[in-house]
């Protein structure tokens, strides 16, 4: 078991920042473990969600922001729905992900790359263009499409389009992304 010297690595700024950004009080968590019990991704996590809560309470910035769990959380809201202290745990996970992104931690990579591909599809087309998204994702990960077997089932259904749907306000959407980039750089 990994032992962490809480006193030497306590980062009070980190605690404050998480509380401010999420609007949640971390010390309300009494480690009942209910969030972890209901989290569908506990089996995949390197640090389960109740431990993320404890480590965050204890100001363990690096350990928390490095956790792969942040990138495997599907925001299913199960933890938030069930926490006996009404902590919006999923929102804390969201905020930790934002911080991890800002600090340059990318987690397991593939999930983050997929989400980035998704967003660049929105940025370029105003809407998600499923085929374009996949091509982008595949080119960034170098992974062969693991769903190639779906082709024969899906193609005749008329659900796959090789051109994005056209929308007028594409530029407006692109501007949202650009302004966001500028604002974040401030």
């Amino acid at each position: 078991m990994k032992v962490i010297n809480i006193n030497s690595s306590y980062n009070s700024e980190f605690v404050k920042e998480v509380e401010e950004e999420s609007g949640q009080k971390l010390n309300l968590c009494y480690q009942c473990g209910k969030c972890t019990a209901g989290c569908p991704y506990t089996d995949e996590y390197d640090i389960c969600v109740s431990q993320i809560m404890r480590l965050t309470q204890a100001g363990q910035k690096e350990t928390v922001l490095k956790a792969n769990s942040l990138w495997l959380c599907a925001t299913c809201e199960s933890c938030t729905a069930r926490c006996p202290n009404q902590i919006d745990v999923a929102r804390i996970m969201d905020v930790l992900r934002h911080m991890a992104r800002r600090e340059g931690y990318g987690g397991t990579g593939r999930v983050k790359t997929f989400w980035d591909s998704f967003l660049s599809s929105v940025k370029n087309n105003g809407r998600v263009f499923e085929v374009g998204l996949l091509v982008n994702y595949i080119s960034h990960t170098g992974r062969f499409w693991t769903d190639i077997d779906l082709g024969p089932t899906m193609l005749p259904k008329g659900k796959i389009h090789f051109k994005p749907t056209e929308m007028q306000g594409k530029k407006e959407v692109e501007k949202i992304f650009m302004r966001f980039k500028e604002e974040s750089a401030k």
Partner: peptide, 24 residues
């Protein structure tokens, strides 16, 4: 002329970005 709401990926990046995509 609706646009994408941002779905899960946007709010994993930032809440204001996600809300702006929805607000449009």
């Amino acid at each position: 002329d609706w646009s994408c709401c941002g779905s899960t990926p946007a709010h994993t990046v930032d809440h204001s970005l996600s809300s702006a995509l929805s607000a449009r």
